[in-house]
C-alpha cells in the first residue's frame, strides 16, 4: 500500500461515514433519451450516479473492469504502480469502533464546485454545463495541480506514450485524465459503461429531473457524499456507506 493510499484511507475514514446499511428494493433502470447530435448540452440537466455499495459484488471490482474495458486505461507498460492511470478504484473502509468493513468504488465525483477546475491554470479542467467534469486535453499542460486539489484522488497523469486508444477515449502522455462519466455514451443517450454492467446496483440519471429514477431513489432513501463536509455537492452519491 502506497503512502498515498494509506492517506486516502484515513481521509475516507475521517469523513465520518456511518454504516447505514439498507436493503435496496429492486431498481428499475430508466432509458435516457439521446439529444440530437447537433444540439448543445444545457444546464437543464445535471447528470449523476447513485451507487448502492451493498448490491455491488467484490466491492465494485466490476465497475473497475467495465471502465477499463470501455476506456482502455491501466495498461501502461513503462509506468510504475504509482504512475499507472486509474480512473476508478475500490477502497476498503474499516470503521474504527465497530470494525465494520466495506468497500466502495471511487471515481471522479463530478463535484458541483470542482476544486480541480478551480486550480487549473489553463482552463483545461472544466465542468460542462450539465455537471460533467472533464479535462480538455488539447490545452492540458500536465502540471497536475488538479490532481493535488482533488480530495478524492480521482485523477491520473499519463506517464508514457499511449498507442491503440479507443476511438471514443483519446488518451496521451503528459495529460491528466479521470472518469468522464462516459460522456460519449451520455451524449448518445446511453448509460455509462459501469452503470450498464452493474446489474442495477448503480442508477444513472438526471438529478434535476424529479421524475428520474435517480431523483426518486435519492428522495426515498437518500444518498451520501464521500467527504460531505467539504460541501462540493458531488454528482456521485452512495447508499450503504
Amino acid at each position: 500500500m502506497s503512502n498515498i493510499d494509506a492517506y486516502r484511507r484515513r481521509f475516507l475514514l475521517g469523513a465520518g461515514i456511518a454504516s447505514v446499511a439498507t436493503v435496496a428494493p429492486g431498481l428499475v433502470l430508466r432509458q435516457v433519451n439521446a439529444k440530437p447530435a447537433d444540439e448543445a448540452v444545457t444546464d437543464q440537466k445535471r447528470w449523476g450516479m447513485l451507487i448502492d455499495v451493498d448490491k455491488l459484488p467484490n466491492g465494485g471490482q466490476g465497475v473497475v473492469d467495465a471502465c477499463k474495458a470501455e476506456h482502455g486505461w491501466g495498461h501502461e507498460e513503462h509506468s510504475n504502480a504509482e504512475q499507472k492511470t486509474q480512473w476508478v478504484r475500490t477502497v476498503k473502509v474499516t470503521e474504527k469502533l465497530t470494525k465494520h468493513e466495506f468497500k466502495l468504488p471511487v471515481m471522479c465525483q463530478h463535484c458541483e464546485t470542482a476544486p480541480c477546475a478551480d486550480v487549473c491554470p489553463t482552463g483545461a479542467s472544466f465542468k460542462r454545463v450539465d455537471g460533467i467534469v472533464l479535462v480538455n486535453k488539447h490545452i492540458c499542460i500536465g502540471c497536475r495541480y488538479c490532481m493535488m486539489a482533488c480530495p478524492y484522488k480521482a485523477r491520473s497523469l499519463v506517464h508514457e506514450a499511449i498507442f491503440d486508444q479507443k476511438p471514443d477515449t483519446p488518451r496521451g502522455k503528459g495529460t491528466v485524465e479521470a472518469c468522464t462519466l462516459c460522456v460519449h455514451k451520455i451524449d448518445a443517450g446511453e448509460q455509462p459503461a459501469c452503470v450498464a454492467s452493474s446489474n442495477g446496483a448503480i442508477v444513472f440519471g438526471d438529478l434535476k429531473d424529479e421524475s428520474s429514477e435517480i431523483s426518486k431513489q435519492l428522495k426515498a432513501r437518500g444518498g451520501k457524499q464521500i467527504r460531505a463536509d467539504l460541501g462540493l455537492n458531488t454528482g456521485v452519491r452512495y447508499q450503504g456507506i
Binding site: 439529444k35 447530435a37 447537433d38 444540439e39 448543445a40 448540452v41 472544466f126 460542462r128 450539465d130 472533464l134 480538455n136 488539447h138 476511438p167 471514443d168 460522456v183 460519449h184 451524449d187 448518445a188
Partner: peptide, 22 residues
C-alpha cells in the same frame, strides 16, 4: 469541431475527427 464537441457535446459527423479516421 473539437471545441464544439468538448464543451457543448455536439457530435455531428460531418467534421468529426473520428469520422475522418473512420
Amino acid at each position: 469541431q473539437r471545441d464544439e464537441t468538448m464543451y457543448k457535446g455536439i457530435r455531428t459527423q460531418k467534421h468529426s475527427f473520428k469520422e475522418c479516421i473512420n
